[in-house]
Amino acid sequence: MDNGLQIQNVTFSYKKNTRALKNISVRFNRGTFWGIAGANGSGKTTFSYLLNGLIPHVIKGHLSGEVLIEGENSRIKSVSYFSKKIGMVFQNPDFSLFNLEVYDEIAFGLNNQGIKNQKEKINQALKAVNLSGFEKRDPQTLSFGEKQKVNLACVLALDPSYIILDEPSAMLDYQSSINLYDILKRLNNKGKTIIVIEHDTDLLFKYTSNLLVLNKGKASYVGDTKNIFSDKTILLDNGIKPLNYINKNSL
């Protein structure tokens, strides 16, 4: 079934009267490269939790509207079921790694899904993120960029159709960010749907084809990335830095 990820009129609140997401409708088609942007506290991370069923199964609150993952309602099936289809890389890799070896870290998801032929899948996943030979390394001793790549490998080993990344370039240097986004682009070319939450407008402009802009929990823009970058006012109203904005203004 190729219905993509459909978010239909979703409103979510952690507590009563404090709405984190307000009436959002968006559809992520297969094979696209989406960016999600917005100011701090605009609901980007909460929105990402919606996409793989963490809301409402793990993160409690009041949810209205429907989230359809390839036609299946996220309320009905478990997060474990959706983890085969949707992989999520969380914001802080320091908090995401909890095994003693990189191999175990990647094998964790495979064990949970009861997947055999683990060694081959782990090697493939590590090769995809340019970390071949890192199997026996302690994840805690890796650099920040390598940790982020291990997180991505954990997701890739399960071969999901959709990959969501929450600020993958935060705390990475420019070159590491480019390397990571090149890997994502390569995966996108192979047919994977990539959804990145990102603050860096240069990366958004260069790599994403579609953009969802959130502002105080509302979707203020859904559409083509190139179009929104031609309108500085919309970007600035939503707390997003236009391209080359600081350079031009400081001159």
Binding site: Y49, L54, V58, I59, S78, F95, G109, N112, L158
Partner: peptide, 13 residues
């Protein structure tokens, strides 16, 4: 708190 979310997101039951 974050780890518990991550573990569930990786399919742990």
């Amino acid at each position: 708190d974050q780890l518990s979310i991550i573990i569930v997101a990786r399919g742990y039951q």
